[in-house]
Amino acid sequence: MSLSDGTVVTYPAGATTSTGTVAGVMDAGGGRTAIVLDATAFHPVDTAWPDQPADRGMLRVGDAVYDVVDAVIGATQGDGLLLGPDVPVRTGTEGWTFVVAHLVEDSAIALGDPVEVEVDAAYRAALSAGHTACHLASLALDAALAEAWTKPAPTDALGAPAFDSLAIQESRIVPDGSRDVYRVGKSLRRKGFDPAVLDDVASIAARANGLLAAWIATGAPVHVEAPGETLAARRSWVCALPGGEARIPCGGTHVSSLAELRSAVVSLEAHSVEGGLELVMTTAAVRA
């Protein structure tokens, strides 16, 4: 394959269709073929932090249509292409070229073929709403837990102690929502977090939901900021909230305005686990 700069991606700006040229074809195993394009609107799942699943959609080559059964990040240092779990570095690591690999079955697609990309726009919209709601919920949770800290702690995009980034273990975006799992153990307690506050998760959720309602009511614009067009560019979610402009590193897709959301509500559950507590936050968004 030959992709000196990596795949140009247009999904950060909201695109759900694109045209590109096949720059790489690789056997992905299991009867699947990885098709790499020089440009695509297709959002892939990131192996290092697989919060948002891959888009659904198809590739059209002439009169032939191929369903994309998965889309993953591929990486190369100039000799051979590694896919998905085999990529040993984070996207954007210097010295590596990063691409979007569209996995299809029974493919006759060849190098140099022109390809039309069509993304399932309805599914994308649901994931984008879920991802924006997830970021808002993380900031609201940080604010709701601000008084639980007994020591100065690193802060989030709005200046609150960054519980989310310090305790997060797993985040999964689902259509119109998300599920985030946090670990509260010795490390977090040493940083000054008092887990006793989690005895009343209903009050914490109520405070977070109050903030979410106020933020969504502003209808603030949302955009994804990127220093470049390729997959390797380190993108950020940006939203002007009443507490200041929030900027969070993110490679996913989002709504273009909080006016696209009617509401977002979180629920919290705390469970005892070995060495501490596990806090699960479920976020449900309703689109306007």
Rank of each mutant, 00 (worst) to 15 (best):
T282E: 14
T91L: 03
L241Y: 04
I73A: 02
R287M: 14
Q77I: 14
I35F: 08
D142I: 03
K151E: 13
G74T: 13
G6E: 02
V201M: 09
A39C: 15
D156W: 02
H131S: 01
A284D: 15
A144S: 09
Y123S: 04
A202H: 12
T16F: 09
E118L: 08
A153M: 11
R247M: 08
E147Y: 06
R207W: 10
R183D: 01
V72C: 13
D120M: 06
D86M: 12
A125K: 07
A129N: 01
S263K: 05
L198E: 03
A129I: 01
V99A: 07
V36E: 03
P195K: 10
E225D: 12
R262F: 10
M1L: 14
V65W: 10
G159F: 09
G243L: 08
A205H: 08
V280P: 00
V61F: 13
V273H: 05
T253Y: 00
L145H: 02
V266K: 02
T218I: 11
G14H: 08
W149L: 07
E116S: 07
P114Q: 13
G30V: 12
P152F: 03
L59S: 07
L136I: 04
L241M: 08
E274A: 13
W149K: 05
V197M: 09
S178G: 06
L141A: 02
D180A: 01
Y66D: 07
G84C: 06
W237K: 00
V8F: 05
D113A: 11
G243H: 04
P114T: 13
D86Y: 09
G185L: 07
L136H: 02
D86I: 05
V238D: 04
R287V: 15
A48G: 12
T283M: 05
W237M: 03
W149G: 02
V119Y: 00
P53D: 05
F98Y: 13
T40S: 15
T283W: 02
G219Y: 10
G78E: 12
K191A: 11
C250W: 00
P44T: 01
A15I: 06
M1T: 10
W215F: 11
A108F: 04
E269Y: 10
E274I: 11
D106E: 13
A125D: 09
S256I: 04
R32C: 15
H102C: 09
P227R: 15
R124T: 02
A140Y: 01
E170F: 01
I168N: 05
L3D: 02
E94G: 12
S128D: 08
A284W: 09
G275T: 11
A270T: 14
S138P: 00
L261N: 06
K191N: 06
V184E: 01
L158T: 08
G112F: 12
A64G: 13
D200V: 12
Y66K: 08
G20P: 14
